[in-house]
Design a protein around this nucleic acid. Structure first.
Length: 227
DNA sequence: GCGACAG
DNA sequence: ATCTTGTCGC
């Protein structure tokens, strides 16, 4: 698919924050989607992934939203030239993720990102970046807590509790399987939170994480090991 | 002031 | 994220 990045790549944390502050107003946190295809995105790192020039592999795996069968896969290898800073995480993975998306011959109807969207210090996490850059509906499904407060959701699949930040619900702590640790769902772009949770649940019929994320994780890891 | 902190 | 043994459970 074609992608044009609407800004320069930052070389300092200050520039990165300025980009997020400038783009945050463009997020559309409403809407519903009935995707035919869904792309899962993930990045793997070689060695101590904390380094600034670590080798990385980014994967984009497109699944049929109904059957969860793989429709297309794309991987890109590169380096992460921006350090890992909580809140600026997107700048570390975006360049390679975008290359992976460009490698797709089809345009997916939804992006499922490994991380946060609006549940972010400046309300503009990785899922928002990818949503705005591509113009596509996007959601974030994170594995661990980052910002906000929340109560423990019920123990059953589908149970959830609001993720609150400054009195606003910026995401939801969602149980995707009975008795397993919940995931953190937040809006990236052009999808409401209820819809984002519904989609995340539908994409995780058997395991804790969405099939999209699991597929992208495995593909990026394998590709990195083979390079 | 001191920690905590998506991947 | 990645580095890692053994262990519990389906």
């Amino acid at each position: 698919m074609e992608i044009t990045v609407p800004h320069a790549w930052p070389s300092t944390p200050q520039e990165a924050e300025a980009i997020q502050n400038a783009l945050r107003g463009q997020v559309d946190a409403s809407g519903s989607v009935t995707p035919r295809t869904v792309a899962g995105l993930d990045v793997s790192y070689a060695g101590d992934g904390g380094g600034v020039h670590a080798r990385v592999a980014a994967a984009a795996v497109v699944l049929d939203a109904g059957t969860l069968d793989v429709v297309e896969e794309s991987v890109a290898v590169g380096t992460s030239d921006f350090p890992y800073v909580p809140g600026l995480f997107a700048f570390r993975e975006l360049p390679t993720l975008i290359e992976a998306l460009r490698g797709l011959s089809t345009t997916p109807d939804l992006l499922v990102c490994d991380g946060y969207g609006l549940a972010h210090p400046r309300r503009f996490g990785l899922a928002c970046h990818l949503g705005i850059i591509t113009g596509l509906p996007a959601i974030g499904v994170a594995k661990t807590a980052f910002v906000g407060t929340h109560e423990q959701p019920g123990a059953r699949r589908g149970d959830g509790s609001p993720l609150l930040l400054d009195g606003a619900e910026v995401g939801r702590v969602l149980r995707t399987q009975d008795g397993v640790k919940p995931v953190f769902v937040s809006v990236g772009h052009r999808v409401g939170l209820d819809e984002a949770c519904r989609l995340a649940l539908a994409l995780a019929p058997r395991y804790r994480l969405p099939e999209t994320t699991r597929r992208a994780d495995r593909l990026s890891r394998d590709r990195l090991a083979a390079s």
